[in-house]
Amino acid sequence: MAIHTLYPAERGNLRLSFEYFPPKTDEMEAQLFQTAADLCAFDPHFVTMTYGAGGSTKARSLTAVRRMIHEMGVANTAAHLTCVGATKVEVDAIVTEFIDSGVRHFVALRGDPQGGIGACYEPFPGGYESSAALVAAIRARGDFEISVSAYPEKHPESRDVDADIDMLKRKVDSGATRALTQFFFDNDDFERYLERVRRAGIAIPVVPGILPINNLAQVRKFAGLCGASVPDAIIARLAHLDESPQERLKEATHIAAEQIVDLARRGLRDFHIYTMNRSPLVAGVLDLVGFERRAPASAQRSAGAAA
């Protein structure tokens, strides 16, 4: 098994961000905010909250973002936005709601076609035709952080990687400040992609998206829909552990930790973790890598008083 722990000097300037999705039920809401509380111990640089196609989770996203900022104290909570299923006027109104709620960081996405992943995408009548147009509209509103998507294995609808990178450049030229990648598992794929991005003159940070594997079957299915791949070597490490949940968790922890360590040793400093609103596996991965946990506020106050 590969070495999967970083030395203190290696992890000193690494930064984390976490992606969450808005809850659909009271039980899921409790899980989301418990997960956020657990992972706040790792002092994320920012967190993001997803947004359903056509605004299907608009109210829940807005509520979750407000609570993350004002109750959890995560000031740099980024709100996802899409172009799907809404006019420019409607999207602009949503941007205003987020800004009024304290949002200063957006993740601007085209969004999946209204017919679902795999359907043909058509711009909504009167809406923003692309993520680049959405980025430009947000940029016109002020000096916000604007993250966009990137695809180390190519977006499934793109003609080829060059077309994909050209779209990324359009988003950067429109005002994007960071790219967050689709999850991937082969670091060589990411490194080749990053080299092509830099040769295209794109200088913004390209942050690798890391997905710890809670459920192999679900991840393989989703990967097939979004143009990602799961290497045979990873499948071989997990497929036989379906009836051994503790061993599966341990192996999945090692797989993600190894990926982060290898990327860090290739010079990457930022990592965006897809949490799936669950903390045990993510926390286990970060502990294994060697990220330090920040003491809870109550513990910090007690230490200060003792001093």
Rank of each mutant, 00 (worst) to 15 (best):
115 G>F: 12
95 V>L: 15
142 G>T: 06
243 E>Q: 14
145 E>C: 02
228 A>R: 00
122 E>R: 14
139 R>D: 10
140 A>V: 05
216 L>I: 14
126 G>P: 04
78 A>I: 07
235 I>P: 01
304 G>S: 13
65 V>M: 07
109 L>H: 02
23 P>Y: 11
165 I>W: 05
122 E>I: 11
289 V>D: 03
295 A>D: 08
61 S>E: 09
182 Q>P: 11
157 E>C: 11
89 V>R: 14
186 D>I: 00
88 K>L: 01
287 D>Y: 05
89 V>W: 05
143 D>W: 09
98 F>S: 07
95 V>N: 05
119 A>F: 12
122 E>H: 14
254 H>V: 14
199 R>V: 05
297 A>E: 15
72 M>Q: 12
247 E>S: 13
97 E>H: 05
251 E>G: 03
54 G>D: 11
177 T>P: 04
115 G>W: 13
35 T>Y: 12
173 D>Q: 07
266 R>V: 07
300 Q>T: 08
62 L>G: 05
29 E>Y: 11
204 I>Y: 12
302 S>K: 11
11 R>L: 14
281 L>M: 05
258 E>Q: 15
248 R>P: 01
66 R>P: 03
129 E>D: 14
16 L>H: 07
151 Y>N: 13
50 T>Y: 08
274 Y>H: 10
175 G>M: 10
246 Q>G: 03
57 T>C: 00
242 D>K: 13
259 Q>R: 13
147 S>Q: 00
8 P>G: 03
103 V>R: 03
179 A>M: 09
13 N>A: 15
39 L>Q: 04
91 V>H: 08
36 A>N: 03
12 G>T: 05
272 H>S: 09
2 A>T: 11
68 M>G: 01
268 L>H: 15
34 Q>T: 13
61 S>G: 11
27 E>V: 09
142 G>I: 06
74 V>S: 00
297 A>Q: 11
78 A>N: 10
43 D>E: 13
129 E>C: 04
152 P>Y: 12
294 R>Y: 05
151 Y>P: 10
239 A>L: 08
167 M>C: 04
186 D>H: 02
85 G>S: 11
85 G>R: 06
104 R>C: 03
115 G>H: 11
213 I>C: 03
298 S>E: 15
28 M>P: 01
46 F>Q: 01
296 P>V: 02
9 A>T: 06
184 F>D: 01
64 A>R: 02
221 K>Q: 02
184 F>I: 10
156 P>S: 06
63 T>V: 02
261 V>E: 11
74 V>G: 00
258 E>S: 15
1 M>I: 00
49 M>K: 04
274 Y>C: 07
30 A>M: 08
255 I>H: 12
85 G>V: 10
252 A>G: 04
67 R>W: 10
303 A>G: 04
122 E>T: 15
260 I>E: 01
140 A>Y: 10
175 G>K: 04
134 L>D: 09
300 Q>M: 15
76 N>K: 15
8 P>V: 02
199 R>M: 01
287 D>A: 06
144 F>Y: 14
146 I>T: 01
95 V>H: 08
129 E>I: 04
299 A>Y: 11
284 G>V: 12
93 A>K: 07
40 C>K: 06
119 A>Y: 12
200 A>S: 15
116 G>M: 06
146 I>K: 03
120 C>Y: 12
153 E>Y: 09
12 G>P: 02
103 V>A: 05
298 S>H: 14
55 G>I: 06
286 L>E: 00
124 F>W: 15
34 Q>H: 14
